[in-house]
């Protein structure tokens, strides 16, 4: 019996009057690498944001490690979409990666030498230590994504939640990210990734959630990632 690290029960969410997530119940197994796929506007980002309590659902609940406590959120490393932060912010790559350590510091306490060391390690893992003193605005798209992932690694979280990390990046970075994910998965981490390329789902992931406002299917890739389910999720509604 596999242990579930995230359980979602009867989740409904809406923006203004429009429902975005409709009656969703699913489990994400511990140590899995789960893809969330679905067409634009299917509620993929909304779902991961509700998991992290960034969006309040209309009803239903999300439990992490069986608990709804806000402290469980610290076990999540969130890699947002590239456009979601201010890239002109006066911070170096190292500064951003060091922020990953803030999670363990609480209020007021500053990061110490150990934290710096871990941030540097994370930079090395993502092979961007050469850029550590660059301002983040000087990075290319792929380097930005690496910096975000390095921050997540520095955080040393149990669960990595990523919103389209492979969107618009170079092949080298894509391969590196996948390699790092595999490596971290072997050491027991769980990955939940919003993914937009259907052709690589089978190759990169072992679990999948297929979504279009309501849940189409969730489970092991071999069983749920079928043509029938994809067709169901992506079928255009003709009015």
């Amino acid at each position: 019996m596999t242990e579930n690290i995230i359980t979602i029960k009867n989740l409904n969410a809406a923006y203004q009057e429009k429902p975005v997530l409709w009656h969703i119940s699913l489990d994400i197994p511990k140590n899995s690498c789960t893809a969330i796929v679905g067409p634009n506007g299917a509620g993929k980002s909304t779902m991961i944001k509700t998991m992290m309590q960034l969006i309040k659902p209309l009803s239903g609940e999300v439990k992490i490690n069986g608990s709804k406590d806000k402290h469980e959120l610290k076990k999540i490393a969130y890699v947002p979409q590239k456009g979601e932060v201010n890239w002109d912010f006066p911070a170096t790559v190292f500064d951003v990666v060091l922020m990953g350590r803030y999670v363990h510091k609480g209020w007021i306490k500053r990061p110490n030498a150990k934290d710096r060391e871990m941030a540097l390690e994370a930079l090395k893992t993502m092979r961007i230590e050469a850029f550590k003193d660059r301002q983040i605005s000087e990075l290319s798209g792929g380097q930005r994504q690496r910096a975000f992932l390095a921050r997540a690694i520095a955080q040393d979280a149990e669960i990595y939640v990523m919103d389209e990390p492979l969107q618009g990046i170079d092949v080298t970075t894509e391969n590196l990210i996948i390699e790092v994910i595999r490596h971290l998965q072997q050491s027991g981490k769980t990955f939940v990734i919003v993914h937009h390329q259907l052709d690589t789902v089978g190759e990169y992931f072992d679990h999948a959630i297929i979504l279009n406002k309501s849940l189409i299917a969730a489970g092991a890739v071999e069983t749920v990632f079928t043509e029938e389910n994809i067709e169901k999720a992506y079928r255009e509604k003709v009015n």
Binding site: M52, N86, M99, Y102
Partner: peptide, 22 residues
């Protein structure tokens, strides 16, 4: 000085700051 870290992270990436417990 006291809230430097919190000011920095919440100005740069508010969502991350929230998850990090600030």
């Amino acid at each position: 000085i006291i809230f430097y870290k919190e000011l920095k992270v919440s100005s740069f990436d508010p969502k991350f700051a929230f998850i990090a417990g600030f």
